[in-house]
Design a protein around this nucleic acid. Structure first.
Lengths: 232, 232
DNA sequence: TGCATTTTATTTGTCGACAAGAAAAATACA
DNA sequence: TGTATTTTTCTTGTCGACAAATAAAATGCA
């Protein structure tokens, strides 16, 4: 509702990107709930621009599956498909493996610095018990590893999966507020070491184990919820 | 240039999809060369609609990497990145494996019928020595297998790779006009059999072998071209 | 009151127009 | 003639308005 627009002056091509980035973050941080309707005119008023650039941003978001648009009728934030979470987890685990392995193979020195940066940001956020930052920096950490692997096809799919994962982890931490495992930080450190040592097999193995640990933990929560739903 | 628009009457939401589909096919069939500029007003005239829906179609195509758009300046058909073809092949081979394996695991009877349909279309096109149809039905065949695997994340990446592959195969067949291997038809048949038998390992193995055969063949061509470039 | 039909309201898809940016052309100047 | 600067041209990004499509409300009728 409250909008902090300091500059009414906007550069020519920047409006779309701004709306896109902001909406994307709000969706991934669950600030806008899945299923919420998205109103073009409302957004146009909020950002003080015409509907045209708003629409372009929405088309992009729809292209990444973050919003769904019914023809001639409402557009809304995509729901999380709990029924088919296993397909998400399958893809996530495989991409963790592949990207970590490729990073061990193809990284350059400067990549390690970037990865370490996010690693430290994550550790800091964990100490501060800051969910949102933890989730976002964790995603950034693994995205940086994928970038170091230098396969844009894998990177883009992995980014999409990490995005979707941000929403799911968000739900997870809303249920388990006091759960902040140092373990993940240690695993991250081990992954970095394997990448730096160019040990493909170890990187692959660690990536797989790390992914499966996260998946197992999240699945535990949702299976509990499933049982709850059935009980109702 | 010549446009066959029989109906000047268009339904409300159909314009964007029409432009999108047509442009997409023209790009993938190399009817528009990589690097060609795309002019919005020209398209608007050609399809007899305003620039707005044209633009939406272009944004979609850009989202899939089929066109590239320089801010405030021209937009053009994406070039094929020959320098990094190996990343494409890596991703392609892995997705061939994964989707074929998942199809063996998760397919339903009705999927087989669809897959067989494209299989036969491919065989027909091969007999007719019709490049364009061969390439398109081959992509459709493997996309159908991916659909039977029922993992939308893998399917969407694989679709993108198959699309890009259409352009590359197009180049390939432009060089080797008389090369129409029956072998691929046989391999397709074997893949269908493995899927139907729900033999995951065999499906995986065949998918990998099939992919690597295609990759090897294409690489042979391009490595020859590479040498040529160096010789010049 | 309950259901079918018409009317109104809301939201999207499309349009034509205009202005900002960048390249190309034209001009000035050495 | 060659380079710097201005002018023109061309394309894109944005705008406000209108029309089609759908949902919601109102009305009619039993």
């Amino acid at each position: 509702m409250t909008e902090t627009d300091s500059l009414p002056e906007r550069k020519r091509g920047s409006g779309v990107k701004m709306v896109y980035d902001l909406l994307r973050d709000e969706i991934l941080d669950l600030k806008i709930a899945p299923g919420s309707p998205i109103d073009e005119v409302q957004l146009a008023e909020r950002f003080k621009m015409s509907r045209t650039p708003i629409r372009e941003a929405l088309v992009r978001l729809a292209g990444e599956g973050l919003i769904e648009t019914l023809p001639n009728r409402s557009t809304m934030v995509s729901n999380i498909d709990f029924m088919n979470l296993h397909t998400f987890f399958d893809a996530l685990v495989l991409m963790y493996r592949v990207t970590t392995r490729l990073a061990a193979q193809s990284h350059r020195p400067e990549d390690i610095a970037i990865i370490r940066g996010f690693h430290e940001d994550y550790a800091t956020a964990l100490k501060a018990r800051d969910h949102l930052t933890m989730i976002a920096t964790n995603a950034a950490f693994h995205a940086a590893i994928a970038e170091a692997g230098r396969n844009p096809y894998f990177t883009s799919l992995f980014r999409r999966l990490l995005d979707e994962g941000r929403r799911i982890l968000q739900l997870y931490y809303q249920s388990y507020e006091e759960h902040f495992p140092q373990r993940f930080v240690d695993e991250h450190a081990a992954i970095i070491a394997a990448i730096e040592a160019r040990d493909l097999e170890e990187a692959d193995r660690l990536g797989k184990a790390h992914a499966e640990a996260i998946v197992a933990q999240v699945q535990k929560l949702f299976s509990r919820n499933d049982r709850l739903d059935i009980a109702l």
